[in-house]
Each structure stands twice: as C-alpha cells, then as structure tokens.
Design a protein around this nucleic acid. Structure first.
Lengths: 152, 152
DNA sequence: GTCGGTGCAAAATTTTTGCACTAGC
DNA sequence: GCTAGTGCAAAAATTTTGCACCGAC
C-alpha cells in the first residue's frame, strides 16, 4: 500500500505538485476501494472520515488533478455522475468494464483485449491510438443464474 | 430521409408512443446532423428553429424515450454533457468513436470490431453481452500531419 | 372525457469558481 | 512574505420534476 502512495507522491512531485494531507487521504480512499468506481460525492464522504475538515471542492480539485496526471481515470457509465478509477501501475494494461443492466454491478477485466483492434484502427483510419475506453453492457453471471431460477 | 422518419414512427407505435410534431422535429435534427454528436442543448436550439414553441424539457423527454427504445445512443465523452447519436438501421453494427485529444474532433467508425472480443468475454467471464461502447482517444490523421509540418 | 404529451418554471443534482485564509519554504 | 493549496459558500451548468393545459381519439 505505502509504495503506491509513494508512487503517487513522486508523480505529483515530478510536476511540482505536493501530496498534501487532503490529497493523500483521497488517494488512500481510492486505493482502499479500488474496485468500487466511486463518485466524487462517495469519495468525499469516505475522505471525510479520515479528514473531517476537507471540503467537497478540494476532492473535486484533487480528482481533476489526478485525472490530468493520468493517475486516475475519470469514467462515466451514463448515470449522471463521473466516477474515478485508479490506474494500474503497469500502464500498458488498461482495464475495461462489464456493466450489468439488471443489477447495476460493475466488474473489471484487466486483459488488454484490444491490441489487434488498435492496430487495425491505426492502419485503416490513420488514427494514432493513445488510450481507449471499452464498456460492455449486458447481464452478469449472477443475474443469468437468478433468471434461470426465477423466470419472469 | 422520409423512410427513416417512418421507421422511427413505427418503432414508437410498436410501443404505443406517438410521433408528435415535437418528437418528429427532434428526430429530423438528429438525422440532419447525424455525424455531429449533439448535446441536448444543441439539439434543443436546432429544434427550436423548426418548432419555436418547444421546451427544453420536451427535448430531454424525447431523447430519453428514444434512448430507452434504443433508437438513439446516449454517449458521454467526459465533458459534462450527454450526447445523442442516432443508431444505424442495421442494429447488429454498432459504431465506435475516435476522439482526437488535440483538436477534439470525433470520428465515427462503423465496423463491428468487437465480435471476437465479445465472444471471449462471454466464454471467459460468463457475461452475456448486449451492447458495448468503445472509444479510442488519440491523435487524428489531420493533427498528425499538422504536427509534422509545425513541430513544437 | 380521458390520456398521452407538452410548456413553463421550479427544483434537484453535479461540478466549478471566487475569495479570504492557511501552511510551508 | 510568497505561493500553492484549502474551505466555504455562491454560482453555474445540466437534467429532472410538478403541474396546469392542450389535443387527438
């Protein structure tokens, strides 16, 4: 855990930003709840438990900063709010999402499935790919099983 | 053009909704500006030119309805607003987006690149894919050429 | 007359901004 | 002291909702 905080600290310092207590608390929440795709509000409430004096605006400013530095990814699943995901350390593996349209659960998959597709996009469209977002919408394993047990 | 309006009309009727003048004006704007990824506000302003009495709330309600019926796709590129895209007629081909991080242009690609990837997700994760969203971020052909001519 | 649909205004929600204040160098 | 960073409150921006009204069947 600590080495991951240190890594963020270094990335911030490299751009002359500081890892303030507020920023550290925010990063710690992101680390602790890495699988959770938290919204700014949710992050704010969790950070408040560690650092009660923090303001929502600071959380937004921190998340925006981390987002610019590509330390977190700002993602949007179509409900009104942005969600924030810590990037994995080895930046060559992106992670994608499986959003269940039944129960709303979000699963992550870490394989880089798009290597071939990216090559195709570069050669066919002349578009130099830097990053990508991929989200599948569908029905998760649990809901499929539930549907078998209790059909409509 | 007209047959595409008719198609929407049928889809609405099939679910006991009407193609009111306001809804028709909205769909026409979407048809005319199909490549443009308009926001609700932009659509509202364009619809107002045809039907000045329309309210923004109606545009939102129409877009939400069309979205539920899968006639349009609600997409989000990370700026604060939702954008709306008419689905292509042959629903088995989704369309993906190439977002240029230099000039902000959005290109569409219509190939269904993900057939193999979807199969993998279904077999590996047991997730039944219904739809997907794929966006590439990178540098478009024009900006690459501009960069060669005028390096930093 | 009923009911889906609409327009308007108000409300709710999410995010940003202005400004005075603080802490570290 | 200067500067980056912060907290708070206000503002902005986007989207939703309540309600009275309208129009087609």
């Amino acid at each position: 855990m600590e080495h991951r905080i240190d890594r963020v600290k270094k990335l911030l310092h490299a751009q002359s930003y500081k890892l303030t207590p507020q920023r550290e608390a925010t990063v710690r929440v992101l680390l602790e709840r890495e699988q959770d795709h938290l919204s700014a509000e949710e992050i704010y409430l969790l950070v408040k438990e560690k650092a009660p004096e923090i303001g929502l605006a600071t959380v937004y400013r921190t998340l925006e900063l981390l987002s610019e530095l590509k330390i977190v990814d700002k993602i949007n699943f179509g409900d009104g709010v942005s969600r924030y995901d810590l990037r994995k350390e080895g930046a060559e593996h992106f992670h994608h999402h499986l959003v269940c349209i039944e129960c709303g659960s979000v699963e992550e998959i870490v394989d880089d499935l798009l290597v071939d597709v990216e090559k195709l996009v570069e050669s066919e469209w002349g578009f130099q790919v830097k990053d990508h977002r991929l989200t599948f919408h569908g029905i998760c394993k649990q809901c499929q099983q539930a549907a078998v047990k209790t059909p409509l």
